[in-house]
């Protein structure tokens, strides 16, 4: 059913820390690896070793150069995946009911057996979170690793999305935003977590932690070492040459 639930019991989602993300792409690889083999049609590649490789990914990491008015440019890595929106437009546009948001935990999923591959949900998403799989002809999207987070055959430490589990920096956090004291709620609150493109009316669940302001050194600690005054013969040469 593509009408959205009025309220979800949990609001599972991610906090992504733009301050610490180093852009290593490990989350991209882990996501692709896990979703190659578990839930739904595998994420396919087209000509992976050919001249023009292309493939389906549920997570992409952009890199931006941001130049503040008063300090040098900084590089900010920016992972982009499904934000599991409360008012997910990808769900309501779906003509078949394949796209749905779960009332119990708020995860936005695709029932691939009902997906006709019309692509309308991908158009409706402002974040580019959905990609049509060229091999299966069905829409793929982040499942928050629904086949990991409730999977009791996995060790407890692994019951979180593959991208979160693999991040070597700890820049990705998984939790329940409906609980104000959860790790993600506290992180978002304390670090001023932002929602992407709120003007689109999607009410995204995921939050991005903006980069902290970088320190600006008043002067280099090496500056005194540069103030070299020559003495002796070199000093005499320095003074003589300076006069010419």
């Amino acid at each position: 059913m593509t009408c959205l639930p009025v309220k979800t019991d949990k609001k599972l989602g991610l906090v992504i820390d733009l301050d610490t993300c180093v852009g290593c792409q490990a989350c991209v690889t882990a996501c692709k690896g896990w979703n190659d083999q578990g839930y739904g049609a595998p994420l396919s590649d087209q000509a992976p070793y050919g001249a023009e490789p292309s493939g389906t990914f549920l997570n992409r990491v952009h890199s931006y150069e941001v130049t503040p008015a008063d300090s040098p440019a900084q590089i900010i890595n920016f992972p982009r995946s499904c934000l599991h929106c409360d008012d997910a437009p990808c769900v309501t546009v779906c003509p078949t009911g394949a796209s749905y948001k779960r009332a119990e935990d708020g995860i936005v999923l695709v029932n691939e057996d009902a997906c006709i591959g019309c692509g309308l949900c991908a158009w409706a998403c402002p974040y580019g979170a959905r990609e049509m799989d060229a091999a299966a002809g069905v829409m793929k999207k982040c499942t928050l690793c629904v086949d990991r987070i409730y999977n009791e055959t996995l060790p407890e430490a692994d019951r979180e999305p593959a991208c979160v589990r693999t991040c070597p920096i700890g820049a990705r956090h998984f939790g329940d935003f409906a609980d104000p004291e959860s790790n993600v709620s506290r992180l978002a609150r304390n670090r001023g977590g932002i929602a992407l493109m709120p003007e689109m009316g999607t009410a995204p669940v995921n939050r991005y932690l903006p980069p902290r302001r970088k320190d600006v050194l008043a002067a280099s600690p090496l500056a005194p070492l540069l103030d070299v005054s020559a003495t002796g013969l070199a000093g005499w040469l320095d003074r003589m040459l300076g006069k010419i």
Binding site: F78, P126, E199
Partner: peptide
């Protein structure tokens, strides 16, 4: 505005994903 980074300064693509 899309990246939320505009509040820091001028944003441009450094490298595509």
């Amino acid at each position: 505005s899309a990246t939320g980074l505009g509040t820091i300064g001028a944003v441009q693509v450094f490298e595509q994903p």
